[in-house]
């Protein structure tokens, strides 16, 4: 059926239940076959890095700190070649980069910030599984507070870096957060980013990792949904400096549902969860 068509074929090396398989499908559904991808050395980049590959689009992998800079290079080259008339432009080629939270916020931060500041053309997807999962669940700057990782076995002390607002401070045209539990919203955001055509667009997706976060592989989508429904992961977009937040249609679920389903928060006491709940309750708009 037309609505089922994707440009990624079956047969990948993701762990069972990994959200990366779903995300690649959705991204390629919108950005289509006429695209070029710059890949970071992360979990989500595996289809482009391992042989045999299920992808049918051209990809470039230049190592871990690279994806944003490679994005700049590809779009600069496409522009100049089109200007010189050397490469016939077959429609608008969508250039995007996809990298994990380590490759975006830590080792790739300099390149990301540079590319955003220069406002190079391209869409940047941050696949946020909240730790360095590909090397075995080590903490990153996007790991939330009190979360278990192999390098923070008693829970991380520092808070999660608020990367979407950092990117908005670069004054790029479009910043958005997304979650797999709401795929239509995610698709709409990619479409909006694609249709802007110019400038550096940034989409930050929460990607629950069954192995790193400690929940059964079948609950990946459920956890993504819970993250939004409990208020832990707000869905918003910042377009040219104006923030628009998704409003809830139903009551906010208690945040303990989100914490208790994951083993990485198993050591949280009820008091600590109540404290988080109190903070989140303040975000609810009064009826």
């Amino acid at each position: 059926m037309e609505k089922d068509k994707t440009f990624i074929r079956p047969g990948n090396f993701f762990c069972p239940g990994c959200p990366a398989g779903i995300i690649w499908k959705l991204i390629l559904k919108v950005l289509g076959p006429n695209c070029i991808a710059s890949i970071g050395s992360t979990c989500v980049g595996m289809p482009a890095i391992l042989y045999p590959s299920p992808l049918d689009i051209p990809t470039l992998h230049v190592g871990m700190p690279g994806p944003a800079a490679a994005l700049s290079g590809i779009s600069a080259a496409l522009e100049i070649l089109a200007e010189k008339g050397k490469r016939p432009a077959r429609g608008n080629i969508n250039v995007f980069a996809i990298a994990g939270d380590g490759g975006t916020a830590d080792i790739g931060m300099a390149a990301l910030s540079g590319a955003a500041e220069r406002n190079d053309n391209g869409i940047y997807f941050c696949f946020d599984n909240e730790a360095y999962m590909n090397t075995g669940i080590q903490r990153s700057s996007l790991t939330p507070r009190k979360s278990w990782t192999t390098t923070t076995p008693v829970g991380k002390f520092q808070t999660k870096k608020d990367l979407p607002t950092i990117m908005a401070a670069h004054r790029i045209p479009y910043v958005a957060t997304a979650s797999l539990g709401f795929p239509n919203d995610f698709i709409a955001k990619i479409k909006k980013a694609r249709d802007l055509k110019k400038g550096f667009r940034y989409i930050h997706i929460l990607a629950p990792c069954p192995i790193g976060w400690g929940f059964p592989s079948e609950k990946t989508v459920e956890v993504s949904r819970l993250a939004v429904e409990t208020g832990v992961w707000p869905l918003y977009e910042i377009e040219s400096g104006v923030m628009r937040q998704a409003q809830r249609k139903t009551a906010r679920k208690p945040v303990s549902q989100y914490f208790r389903i994951q083993k990485r928060f198993a050591h949280l006491t009820d008091d600590e969860i109540d404290a988080v709940e109190a903070v989140l309750r303040k975000t609810e708009t009064p009826e």
């Binding site: 059926m1 089922d4 074929r9 993701f14 990994c18 959200p19 398989g21 779903i22 299920p54 990946t220």
Partner: peptide, 25 residues
């Protein structure tokens, strides 16, 4: 079909309300 990370599910071409699982993947 949307949520399968492997893309192993597809609609049967004969019966539109039947889902076929590709067990190879």
């Amino acid at each position: 079909i949307l949520y399968c990370p492997e893309g192993a599910l597809s609609r049967s071409s004969v019966a539109s309300r039947t889902i076929i699982v590709d067990y190879a993947f």
